[in-house]
Amino acid sequence: MILHTLNQPPANAACFERCREAMSSDDTLLLIEDGVYWALPAFAARLESLSGRVKVLAADAAARGVDLPAAHCIDDQAFVALCVSHDKVVSWF
């Protein structure tokens, strides 16, 4: 079980695609910084295969005016908890 973090915006699609390909079925993706834009409805199809396994850092989404369902958003404490509940963390940037 790996926690992947991704901080790149949709213009850097290669970064997102490598991350997505590297994910196993029990991995989790946490979108941070400019990565939160991937959670917009426009990109829903590309996240479809990850359904239920994508989280968004709430402060980064709020900062950018990206309005998302609360269920997807986590705070910094929950970020730490995800690091603990997964075996390792892989950062994509």
Binding site: N7, E33, D76, F93
Partner: peptide
């Protein structure tokens, strides 16, 4: 931390993360 301050957000994200790690007792 590979992100510089000011030009990238990563340094600030790392700081917040560090605080959260410590707050959780790690």
């Amino acid at each position: 931390v590979q992100a510089p301050p000011v030009q990238a957000q990563g340094a600030e994200t790392a700081l917040r993360f560090a605080r959260a790690v410590l707050a959780a007792g790690h």
